[in-house]
Design a protein around this nucleic acid. Sequence first.
RNA 1: GCCCGGGUGGUGAAAUUGGUAGACACAAGGGACUUAAAAUCCCUCGAAGGUAUACUUCGUGCCGGUUCGAGUCCGGCCCCGGGUACCA
Length: 819
Amino acid sequence: MTEYNHKTIEAKWQAYWEENKIFRAEDFSSKPKYYCLVEFPYPSGDGLHVGHPRSYTALDILARKKRMEGYNVLFPMGFDSFGLPSENYAIKTGIHPSITTKKNIEQFTNQLKSLGFSFDWERAVSTTDPDYYKWTQWIFLQFFNKGLAYKKEMPINWCLSCKIGLANEEVLDGNCERCGGEVEKRSIDQWMLKITAYADKLLKGLEDVDFLDRIKTQQVNWIGKSEGAEVDFLIDGSDKKIRVFTTRPDTLFGATFMILSPEHDLIQTITSDEQKSEIEHYIRHSARKSDLERTELSKEKTGVFTGAYAINPVNNEKIPIWIADYVLISYGTGAIMAVPAHDTRDFEFAKKFNIAINCINHPDEQLAQKESINPIDVLSGNVCWPFEGECINSSNNRDLNLNGKNVKSAVKETVEWLEKYGAGKHAVNYKLRDWVFSRQRYWGEPIPLIHCNSCGWIPVPEKDLPVVLPDVEKYEPTETGESPLATIEEWVNTECPKCGGSAKRETDTMPNWAGSSWYFLRYIDPKNNSSFADYDKLNYWMPVDWYNGGMEHTTLHLLYSRFWNQFLSDCGYIPASEPYLKRTSHGMILGEGGEKMSKSRGNVINPDDVVEKYGADVFRTYEMFIGPFDQSASWDTKSISGTERFIKRIWRLFTHTPIKDISLNKDQLYQLHTTMKKVTEDIDSLNLNTAISQLMIFVNEMSTYAVIPLKAAETLILLVSPFAPHLSEELWETMGHTSSINYADWPKYKKDNLVKDSIIIVIQVNGKLRGEISIASDEDKESILHLAKKEKNVLSYLEGKTLIKEIYVPGRLVNFVVR
RNA sequence: GCCCGGGUGGUGAAAUUGGUAGACACAAGGGACUUAAAAUCCCUCGAAGGUAUACUUCGUGCCGGUUCGAGUCCGGCCCCGGGUACCA
């Protein structure tokens, strides 16, 4: 037998798998289905990063094991190929993004194939493929038809020197990423998707799925549901009202002023003449502030008095109305009632501008002590108390008396009172905002709408989809901030599908998030021309059983794709409302120094080099052995030799030691079945580092055998096969098997074999280790205690002492408590 | 500030969820084979004391607690990483 040569072995089996379509997922198979999903990559010009295979290898291992366990596994791969780098490259070089994209996809495909992943390549999709984005556009039209897509004026990041709209990730520290120039906010009409209509459903859906807790928490926080009340304040000397949202209606008696956001539309109406110029100045000033400044300068509160007063509905007191930019137009109603005694931000503001602070909530004594706050200071208005307490000074002569009540019941009672007097109502608010779905860019899916002056916005008829991206010569957005598509007159000018009159196409394109919001559905039926995917096939495959991806996608991508799935499910196109049963996230692979890999740091590891030198099997095993899957890990070139030795040791074991069909002794059975159990369970929980270490233990053990029992050899190779599939296929074949190891039965351990003849019992005296004894595994408690007491070192600790207690933990230890 | 993770040898990490802390590896040191090197194999490897592979003490970020027994549970604190940011 020759030396281990990864190049010939890996090439041989990769070709075999492809020719024999070993990993093809079969629609409607009678086997139970299992849908394994990894996030598809953006095919960047840099090629595959060593971080990509971490997720792919882990789920590949799972997929391979599931196949061996008799599942019909769907494990697909595709490309999220719309993206800024291709477009920026086109702006620089004039090379069409589709050419760059095609080239990059080819490179990625080759790289992925060289790693031996068991993807069903026949189902590969690419979001830039018109056959794919036809359905992205179609889904958008479903949103439009259901009234969930609407146009609204929204700010974009505008680079003053490039004259181009920038994505948020292209703005670095308030400046343009490529020219370093100044970036300002500019408002333009943009398409929005009403994800807020699904806020509750997205929240509720989390109850039924198995996501890592921290992922659930992130989703919950992002949606940010808060309950409270909307309260109307009359404006003194006007018929207008200011509506505010508050989570603490119980503090209404402590409201001593109001604040409108600088963008609030009542400002012009209510501002007094003498305050007008100051107000206008403040509005202009805060509009010019970038997002960065708003947050950086967040410490110091600013604001201006409008000259107007509002009437507090619970006590009819006149309170001043201010404007301040710490109140955001995008949250709630863009206006607040300020209760400085019980809100830290309002407290800061009141202190700075000398506004009254009325304490109406007596701190809970215990809590106050914990927070080291003296209630006296709160009562006098010197310290803010935003926590739990008891209402004081909170009653009026119209049946509202909150005094003595805690926060919860006071909130309830106030809301009831407000509703009775028509001054407010129970309300719910979300941090989640509607999704800005327009980009003024070339390289994205065209939004399939046509604007007609007489009919308004009309969808492109389904038969005319996809609206294909036309060729352009220049990829830069225009002087006006419109998409480069706007300059192609023959494309823009079209007929109204409804009245036949002249009309114009929408020139905005969709964001990068669009294509990835439903790709897991297209894998199920990637060639379908009449619908995005066949219902029966969806019914067979969905939901995804296990979805793994990066932690960086656990808010937006996860939320967006759940939203699309829920929506399509509500429309009756998909059976299940939640797309993913289980979601995990892997940690990043960092450079050797523990820093992020980047060209500028010069610490980038190219997976091709590793495969060339060590082979795919070593690379895969190394990445799984590197550390706990959900935590980040630093690449360590030296450590690869550990897994390299492991792989080569298996090869040598099979090629240099005789393998005979002899039975295993009791100890060998114990070792084998312990390994079967550990590896099986560890793959199921993706604890792949410990699965590998158990395999190493077993291989080390087998190296001491003079003759290897056939059963042990076969079982080992089956257990290793998901990790090192090429090596395993090769050895499986040399052992005389004629069919692929991929469909061999996964080994099942027997409990009977997990017992050893003799075991070691540890003996402690007062909790300290003093000795150990070897006993038969069925030895009874009495004789174990008896033997333990006789152990010579233990004896010296028992002599002259009184035995108070004997503790026996079966199969583990004995502890004598003495005095 | 808030919400998550995490802190264990020189290094990456294990630890059956309260029961021998450091499995499995890397690095290091020593040895075997070899003309030599690579590869391979064997031994040592938390710290201190001790001739010792006897044994003892200390040791899982820090302080305290619960327990026969704590890396693991409870209370308080410090540091590191990620997410988020005036959300009323």
